[in-house]
Simulated assay, not measured.
Amino acid sequence: MSAGTPAPATGRIAQMRQAYRITKNSDPNIGLLLLLWFLVVGGVFAVAMLLLFDRGVLGIILAVVFGILTGILAALIVFGRRAERAAYAQVEGQPGAAASALQMLRRGWIVKPVVAFTKSQDIVHRVVGKPGVILVGEGNPNRVKSLMASEKRKHARIVGESVPIVEVVVGRDEGQVPLPKLNRHLQKMKKAVKPAEQTAIVNKLKALDAMRPAAPMPRGPVPTSMKSARKMMRG
């Protein structure tokens, strides 16, 4: 066995333990809920297997095995969703939380955290995807809107008027997008540019990024549990 073989399994178990602890803090009944899903879903599929196939010894064994596997799968799906919800609740409102959420977007999205910021920790992140250029702001609504307006003008000069530039403010107030719904909100946006155009847009924006100093991520806990919860949902 190679030296690096056990690492993925250990990391996976550690991620699950961390996600479970965080989820249990906000959802004390998570263990009972998962057991209930395991028993109900596994039992239903086991009975279905017995009704559809031979009820002999082999049929019973297959039904039990299939019931256990489907029960575990159902519990993992529920656990992943609950863990992700708990992780979002843990970091929501903290500086940099939106960047952590955006970096869990799948292929086709190019995320640039902290393209602009203020000393008061108002932050603007950038995402390039099929909808075009999306500026995501978090912080004080008034200050961040002003910061985003400035960034929109800078980006428009680089990418041109033909590329849509969309502004999204993360928060719970009217007209804002809650952190747990941020990625889904972006994914539902209307497609406006093709993949080849996205690459060209990113290359153009590199010139803009090169003209300003690197922006540090704000201080605060890193919500790694969000990433582990999403990995579990993906299986």
Rank of each mutant, 00 (worst) to 15 (best):
K194R: 13
V222R: 15
P164E: 05
A9F: 11
A214L: 14
M148N: 02
A75L: 08
Q103K: 03
A210F: 09
V115F: 02
T199R: 14
E161K: 14
N183M: 06
M217F: 13
V41T: 11
V177R: 01
G96I: 03
A214C: 05
I201G: 01
Q90E: 15
N25K: 15
D173C: 03
G96H: 01
A48W: 00
G139D: 04
G137K: 01
G108Y: 09
G59F: 02
R81N: 10
A196S: 10
P113D: 07
E167M: 14
N29W: 10
T118K: 03
L69F: 15
K206G: 12
L208C: 06
Q176H: 10
G108Q: 11
M233F: 07
A229D: 12
V136Q: 02
E161T: 10
P223L: 06
A97F: 01
A210I: 05
M104C: 08
G220L: 08
L186A: 04
I61D: 10
N25H: 12
P218M: 02
M148W: 02
E138F: 06
Y88K: 03
K204L: 10
P113C: 05
T224C: 04
R212P: 03
V44Y: 07
L76T: 05
T5F: 11
R107K: 12
V47F: 14
V124W: 00
L105E: 05
P28F: 07
A89G: 03
F79K: 01
P218W: 00
F53C: 14
N25G: 12
I123Y: 04
P8T: 10
P178T: 12
M148T: 04
Q198H: 04
K152L: 15
K227G: 06
L33A: 14
Q103P: 01
K204T: 04
G43C: 10
G80L: 05
N203V: 01
T5C: 08
P131A: 07
R157W: 13
V170Q: 00
Q103S: 08
L182G: 00
A9W: 09
V127R: 00
I22F: 04
E167I: 08
M16I: 12
G80Y: 02
L182F: 03
K188I: 05
A9V: 13
I123T: 09
R126M: 12
V124F: 01
P180W: 03
V40S: 09
V47L: 15
V170M: 04
F38K: 07
A156W: 08
A89S: 09
P218D: 08
V159G: 03
M16G: 14
T10F: 10
V170T: 03
G132E: 01
P221S: 10
N140K: 09
L62F: 10
P223Q: 05
V144F: 02
V57I: 15
A97P: 00
I60T: 06
E161D: 15
S26W: 07
K152D: 13
T5V: 15
A210Y: 05
F53N: 13
R157M: 10
V169C: 11
L182E: 00
G220Q: 08
R143F: 07
T224G: 01
G160M: 09
